[in-house]
Amino acid sequence: MSSTLGIAVIGAGKMGSDHVRRIGRTVGGARVVAVADPDGDRAKEVAAGLEGAGAHTDPAAAIAAPGVEAVLIASPGAAHEEAVLHALARELPVLCEKPLTPDPAGALRVMEAELRLGRRLVQVGFMRRFDAEYERLKELLDAGGIGRPLFLHCRHRNASSPAFFTSDMLISDSVVHEVDAARWLLGQEVTAVTVLSPTATAAAPEGVRDPRFVLLETSGGVIVDVEIFVNCGFGYQVQCEAVGEAGTARIGDGHAMVVQSAGRWGGEIDQDFTVRFADAYDRQLRRWVAAAARGRIAGPDVWDGYAAAAVSRAGLTAAHSGTRTAVDLVERPALYH
């Protein structure tokens, strides 16, 4: 590895360009040397401000470009598997935005490729693990500060959903964050999923069942409930309350500055995940760059990506069938213990 880690960024959309900005402005020890996007003009536009960076339409070409020592994948989920496998074929560290793959079968193929190498090179971008509030809650639970956990109550709200959003994406693209956060906070696997649907909000696009209420059961007997509401209208909120045998702990209330004036008090609500989790994205990228420079990862691995995909698949089955659905996981390989 060189003293400045050369990174290929795959995907030049909102997430990819945001990561390029972070690498250039807030993360030391790294630079973008290649950008890939199916839209060649978009790739050129993002690469144009980066000294010596090449623009590509083929991810494989970007990954094979001179100076590439690590790969950041921020393309649509359906394209992740191919790009990850190209990177693993060159034994390059990877940070792949969630989902690792849209389905558990694809995640297993990535796992098989990594197992053949005998070391973990792929990190999945579940950035909540790097959020300061989530880290404090994790420390509290690990220390037994509220006793044995019994419940996690979660809310995940967006002001509005994009035009392409579907009912299934409430589970696969949104609730998947709660799935990973719950697994990590509790140190337990999700074993079953139930999805309940109230009357859809009038603000939802036609055909989209929003909001939904998702129940997750874990291997340790904890019940996790998730209110997912992607057209709430007022802002972006992510909240989590842990209820234990000896107390409770809640994060995500968003209490920053509170203004009192003219007989009223109040504050602001974040309108976008890139605002609420800006610091978490910075922390994630800094830690990954430092680890990738040593040929390692510093966060959720391929097993975590596979488990999230398996729970999402069970969640989609539960949503369509209206019945409780068990999560089917393969035996966890020793590499991921």
Results as ranks from 00 to 15, higher is better:
123 Q>Y: 05
154 C>F: 07
46 V>D: 01
132 A>M: 08
71 V>T: 09
250 R>P: 00
246 A>T: 12
185 L>A: 11
214 V>H: 05
81 E>I: 03
245 E>C: 03
70 A>F: 05
202 A>D: 13
191 T>R: 07
154 C>K: 00
190 V>H: 09
292 A>T: 04
237 Q>C: 13
315 G>T: 11
228 I>E: 14
42 R>K: 12
54 G>T: 06
143 A>L: 11
335 L>R: 05
62 A>F: 02
11 G>H: 03
151 F>I: 04
277 F>Y: 14
12 A>P: 13
270 D>G: 03
166 T>S: 14
65 A>C: 01
281 Y>E: 10
73 I>H: 05
5 L>K: 08
105 A>Y: 04
249 A>F: 06
276 R>K: 14
63 I>H: 02
107 A>S: 15
317 T>V: 14
168 D>P: 00
158 N>Q: 15
5 L>C: 07
62 A>Y: 02
161 S>N: 09
10 I>Y: 08
27 V>S: 10
236 Y>A: 00
137 L>V: 11
224 V>Q: 09
74 A>T: 12
206 E>K: 11
273 F>D: 00
295 G>W: 02
166 T>H: 11
245 E>F: 02
271 Q>Y: 04
201 T>Q: 06
332 R>V: 02
244 G>A: 01
142 D>C: 07
293 A>I: 03
305 G>D: 05
323 T>M: 03
173 D>Y: 09
199 T>N: 14
85 L>D: 01
113 A>R: 08
141 L>K: 08
124 V>K: 07
170 L>G: 13
111 M>R: 12
231 N>Q: 06
5 L>T: 08
10 I>D: 03
206 E>D: 12
73 I>N: 04
276 R>E: 09
321 S>V: 03
111 M>D: 02
63 I>D: 09
326 A>L: 13
165 F>A: 08
11 G>N: 07
256 A>H: 01
209 R>N: 14
303 W>R: 06
238 V>Q: 04
61 A>R: 12
227 E>V: 15
54 G>M: 03
13 G>I: 04
98 K>V: 02
250 R>K: 13
20 V>Q: 12
78 A>D: 14
58 D>T: 10
27 V>I: 11
146 I>W: 01
214 V>A: 10
146 I>C: 05
277 F>P: 00
104 P>E: 05
179 V>S: 06
158 N>K: 15
69 E>M: 02
171 I>M: 13
59 P>Q: 03
175 V>G: 09
294 R>H: 13
171 I>V: 15
